[in-house]
């Protein structure tokens, strides 16, 4: 049996007909064509499939699409704003926090939520925050650096400089 569902993805209401068993990850990728969300294990360990559900990061491979009918989802495609890359995305670029890029969408979603809840995380809070995301390429060092850098960029954005630099 198929179910008619509506997901508000990156601000746009999208409809799909899916069987009950369709994973949110597959729904986003294959029913809605948003292939930025990646799938690396389908058992919840790698974090590649992490998306924001009503702002909270969740595993889309461990969520049925029907369960989240009517809810808001943000994927990597929705992170950049009209002015371009988000501070988190910029920090990842600046710090060389990605190589093959397969884990990256999951990290970006996780870190976006992390910094919203904790704008200036300490080192161990960063590690804890990204501890559910695997990366096989970078050895994480530059990802950790990028999270701190993103926190700086976000702080700058919140506090537009009051004047020119001295």
């Amino acid at each position: 049996m198929e179910h008619e569902i509506t997901l508000v993805v990156n601000g746009t209401a999208r409809r799909a007909r899916v069987p009950g068993r369709r994973l949110l990850s597959d729904c986003l990728r294959h029913d809605l064509g948003l292939t930025g969300t990646h799938v690396g294990c389908e058992h919840g360990v790698c974090g590649c499939c992490t998306v924001l559900l009503d702002g909270e990061p969740v595993r889309s491979c461990l969520t049925l699409a029907v369960t989240v009918d009517g809810r808001e989802i943000t994927t990597v495609e929705g992170l950049a704003g009209p002015e371009g890359l988000s501070p988190v995305q910029r920090a990842f670029e600046e710090c060389h926090a990605l190589q093959c890029g397969f884990c990256t969408p999951g990290f970006l979603c996780t870190v976006t939520a992390l910094l919203r809840d904790n704008p200036a995380p300490a080192e161990d809070e960063v590690l804890e925050g990204i501890s559910g995301n695997l990366c096989r390429c970078t050895g994480y060092q530059n990802i950790v650096k990028a999270v701190h850098r993103a926190a700086e960029l976000l702080a700058e954005e919140r506090q537009p400089s009051t004047g020119e630099a001295p």
């Binding site: 990728r29 930025g36 495609e77 950049a80 670029e93 990605l98 890029g101 397969f102």
Partner: peptide, 18 residues
């Protein structure tokens, strides 16, 4: 800085399953 990053950071990379 890497030239491949922009597409990979915005979900515009193209892997086989995409």
């Amino acid at each position: 800085r890497r030239r491949e990053d922009r597409r990979l950071l915005t979900g515009q990379g193209r892997y086989v399953d995409d």
